[in-house]
């Protein structure tokens, strides 16, 4: 008799819990639609397996929405590559479950992005990035032999993206070995190609550009460090822990040109970083 009563109470408790969750989900959904219907906001959403993935994709979509919104504003049309300053603090987000998936909805008030003073270069605040590829760490010049003969240890890109400030605190960007600007020794078409590659924000877009340049017969070969036939004769693209492109180093034994800052540098400076190599067609 007593067991039956406990069962009933448990069942009632469970039903109440489920009902509360359902009501909470419905409330969030209604709140999302209310914001979507309002003309005061720009919004984006994504439903993915993890909340972090959903947030990252929704954030990217929101940045696109803001870009389009800015482009549509005539007074700001001369500044298409701008983004609202400190978007992360200006935007807000709502999350809810959709089956086993996570739905993240991010929104920002249009009034928060209308002042020209609020704008800075996109490159200064590019938000969280997803590490998309499995990557191999860059070999030091000393490790050339090892890089050419070992199978290369593939590091899983499972770490969650970290905030920019955290990256800076944990792993400060190396400084070039010499501060003097150097002349660009590359022919014009290679300078243009390197310029295009430097515009990449992450490894996926970098690879896509390499593929395109290869299709245009400009890039001859590219790959991960463990498959590099000649470390000294290759260009090296260096990525940070968040998967963002740091710089491109030109060919060389010890001294190479850092094409981001046009100063001398070396592959040893970036030992342990993730990287891709490539060579230009002759």
């Amino acid at each position: 008799m007593r067991t039956k009563s406990i069962k009933k109470v448990l069942l009632l408790g469970l039903s109440l819990l489920l009902a509360t969750v359902a009501v909470a989900q419905q409330t969030t959904s209604k709140e999302i639609n209310k914001i979507k219907r309002s003309t005061s906001y720009l919004y984006a959403e994504a439903t993915m397996e993890t909340e972090q993935d959903a947030y990252d994709v929704a954030y990217e979509l929101l940045v696109q929405q803001i870009d389009e919104y800015i482009a549509s504003k005539r007074k700001l049309s001369k500044a298409p590559n701008v983004l609202v300053k400190d978007l992360k603090s200006k935007s807000d987000s709502l999350t809810m479950m959709r089956g086993e998936m996570h739905r993240v909805f991010i929104y920002v008030k249009k009034s928060d992005i209308e002042g020209v003073d609020n704008f800075v270069n996109l490159a200064l605040d590019d938000g969280p990035q997803v590490v998309e590829d499995a990557v191999v760490e860059v070999p030091a010049e000393d490790d050339k032999e090892a890089a050419e003969t070992s199978s290369g240890e593939v590091k899983e890109a499972a770490e969650p993206p970290v905030a920019k400030e955290e990256v800076a605190a944990e792993a400060p960007m190396p400084t070039p070995v010499a501060a003097e600007k150097v002349q660009n020794p590359l022919p014009t078409w290679q300078q243009e190609a390197v310029g295009q590659l430097l515009e990449s924000t992450d490894m996926a877009s970098f690879r896509a550009k390499l593929n395109r340049l290869k299709a245009e017969y400009k890039v001859k070969r590219f790959g991960t460090p463990d498959k590099c036939p000649s470390v000294a004769n290759s260009f090296w693209a260096i990525f940070d822990t968040g998967g963002r492109l740091v710089t491109i180093l030109g060919p060389g034994e010890n001294i190479r040109i850092d094409y981001r800052v046009m100063q001398h540098s070396s592959l040893d400076v970036y030992k342990g970083r993730t990287a891709l190599w490539f060579t230009f067609a002759k």
Partner: peptide
């Protein structure tokens, strides 16, 4: 996948 859509559209804008 939405991730691919976002990446391709971003590339397309550029």
């Amino acid at each position: 996948g939405l991730q691919q859509y976002v990446r391709l559209m971003k590339e397309g804008e550029r």
